[in-house]
């Protein structure tokens, strides 16, 4: 499997001009999301317009980084060949206290200790010299 992992690089985000502030903040270990100035909706993933009212008036705001595990799965087969060395991998959807849901990984928790709705806090994983992934750990 390790040969495969060498042949296939791990999937990394292809950052756009729209999403750069999100990834830049993560690099600096802050979780920032867009919020609509017109309807106050929190927005994730980053967009050019608010997905609720379609306003272009969006501002970046730092959020608490607190949330709960809406659901999770422990992957025993690599979902991507570049992740073959990461097993068992906990893929989760975390619901932030502010509302939006993120796809993420839970770290610092044994798979058998995972529980739906458990509280978590953000953990910034500097995976290489330019990318920081937004993961979560038990609170």
């Amino acid at each position: 499997m390790s040969n495969q992992a060498t042949a296939f690089p791990r999937p990394v985000p292809a950052i756009t001009d729209v999403s750069r502030p999100y990834w830049q903040a993560a690099r600096e270990h802050r979780l920032e999301l867009q919020r609509c100035d017109d309807c106050n909706e929190w927005i994730f993933y980053p967009r050019q317009v608010c997905s609720e009212c379609l306003s272009s008036a969006l501002s970046w705001r730092q959020v608490s980084g607190l949330g709960t595990v809406y659901s999770y799965t422990v992957m025993h087969v690599p979902p991507h060949p570049g992740l073959a060395d990461d097993l068992p991998l906990i893929v989760a959807v975390v619901k932030l206290d502010e509302g939006p849901q993120l796809t993420t990984n839970i770290v610092g928790c044994e798979p058998e200790n995972m529980v739906v709705d458990m509280p978590v806090t953000v953990y910034f994983d500097d995976i290489d010299e330019s990318i920081t992934l937004v993961k979560f750990k038990p609170l």
Binding site: A14, T73, H80
Partner: peptide, 26 residues
């Protein structure tokens, strides 16, 4: 979709297995 490549795939949400597993777990 590029949005999924950027915000889901880096965490291993690739293909259909993780997504349906999340539904089943919930």
């Amino acid at each position: 979709p590029a949005t999924e490549a950027e915000f889901d795939a880096p965490y291993g949400m690739v293909g259909a297995n993780p997504g349906y597993a999340l539904i089943a777990q919930r």
